[in-house]
Amino acid sequence: MRIALAATCIADTMFPGAPRATVRLLERLGHDVVFPRGQACCGQMHVNTGYFDEAVPVVRNHVETFAPVADGEWDAVVVPSGSCTGSIRHQQAMVCRRAGLDDLATTAEAVSARTYELSELLVDVLGLTDVGAWFPHRVTYHPTCHSLRMLRVGDKPLRLLRAVAGIDLVELPGAESCCGFGGTFALKNADTSGAMLADKTANVRATEAEVLTAGDYSCLMHIGGGLSRQRAGVGTLHLAEILASTREEPTELPPARAARQPADRRTEVAR
């Protein structure tokens, strides 16, 4: 298949490991991956903060960049993010219509109909659960809200992870509860976001996993930022980075700030 990659703005600039792994994985599986260079962002941040007018040019750029998929130039668009896929599917056409751009809305719908979040592409379109990955580490999975409730990816990511050779996959308590990121929510309601994050990181730490994974780098940035601050010794990797890992080309464990010895001892005393 010829698959166009929408890298997402945040991964392109901050977490290039996720789209890189997506490319490696899909090429290993025998597909051609195309990166349309006109792409920038899906518009989700603008839409979710209410800046619909400002979202329009961003959405237009995304839709026009990926419009060739609707004409069959590519077979599908893959997005290594649940929330960006959700925005493409549920918000872009709405924003266009609200701005009176009905034709653009129609194109947006045609593009979104062929756009898939990574686990959807692998399981639903390519019919795979075992992608031949190897990752001999203790891992826990956070199902991000938009993957879970906007896209209904269900247990697809877990099925993919369970098939990874060597993996020690542990269940995350309270997995379906939001981590408190919510885009600008983390800034506008920083205290509430912090309270939600504290519960999420406590649950992650309880699993004693080495790695927390998810299908969205935005949530991983949030939870990972909390784990790093707490020096929890848990690193974060995108689902793609685990699925891309093989014996020949293993994905390295991410850097994880861990507590120094004296800090550990202090915790012991406090207990």
């Binding site: 809200c145 939001c178 929510f185």
Partner: peptide, 8 residues
């Protein structure tokens, strides 16, 4: 703005 839009 009192929501993360988690959809629950």
């Amino acid at each position: 703005y009192a929501s993360t839009l988690c959809g629950a």
